[in-house]
Amino acid sequence: MEQIKHIKNISIENFKCFDYFSVEGFGRFNIILGNNNVGKTSFLEGLLFDENIIQTISNLQGVLQSRRITYDNEIDFDTINPLSFFINKLQKDNRIKVTISYENGKKFNATYQTQQLADIEEDVRKELTN
């Protein structure tokens, strides 16, 4: 049985409408309030990052599917990376940095970077596309 992970703190850089955001002091129940178009949904989507990269990709692809944003992996993978939909377009950096601290004392740090398939070494590219 998977252990429930209670988030204590989260900070994310270069994600959607945020250059940087950080939230501390989560409780057992949390209410998110704010005016329209201030990033409430972006914040919730930021909570989809997980230390399991497969789970993170699945979570983010689910967001794209729920918004009916589709791309054909066979055709568009050289030009479109699903992560690119979540990068803050106002920044030149193509990386999203995530830090999550959990109530049990564990901490998760990750940097996600988009890269064009053509820029990846050929042997690694073959591995990724097979």
Rank of each mutant, 00 (worst) to 15 (best):
E103V: 15
Q116I: 09
V38F: 06
F15D: 05
E24T: 12
I10N: 00
G46P: 00
K107G: 02
I32K: 05
Y20F: 15
Y20N: 06
N73Q: 07
G39R: 04
L44N: 06
F49Y: 11
K126I: 08
A118H: 07
K126R: 09
V98G: 00
G27T: 13
T79V: 11
H6P: 05
P82W: 08
G27P: 02
V23M: 12
G34M: 04
L33T: 05
F15A: 03
E13R: 04
R95D: 11
P82L: 09
D78W: 08
T114H: 12
F108P: 01
N73A: 15
I57W: 03
R67H: 15
I75Q: 03
F85L: 03
K107Y: 03
I53T: 07
E103I: 15
F108H: 11
F29M: 11
K8R: 12
D93T: 14
G34K: 07
L128G: 08
Q55S: 12
A118G: 07
L33I: 08
F43L: 15
F29W: 08
E45L: 02
R125C: 04
E121W: 03
K5V: 02
K16N: 10
G27Y: 09
Y102W: 08
Q65C: 02
L83M: 14
G105N: 13
T56M: 11
E2Q: 10
T129V: 15
D50E: 08
N73S: 12
F29H: 10
L64A: 02
M1W: 06
F29S: 09
K8A: 10
F108K: 01
G27M: 14
N130F: 12
I4A: 12
N35I: 06
S66W: 07
D50R: 04
I54K: 14
Y20L: 11
L44S: 03
Y71R: 11
L48W: 09
K126Y: 06
F85K: 02
G39T: 04
G27Q: 11
L47G: 00
F29Y: 13
V63G: 00
D119L: 10
E24D: 12
S42T: 08
D50G: 01
K126D: 13
E121D: 11
K40I: 06
L60E: 07
Q91K: 10
N109E: 14
I4P: 03
I120E: 01
D72Y: 01
I12F: 03
F43H: 01
D76E: 15
D72A: 09
F77K: 04
I53N: 10
V124T: 12
D123M: 05
Q61Y: 06
F86T: 02
K89G: 10
N9Q: 09
E103H: 13
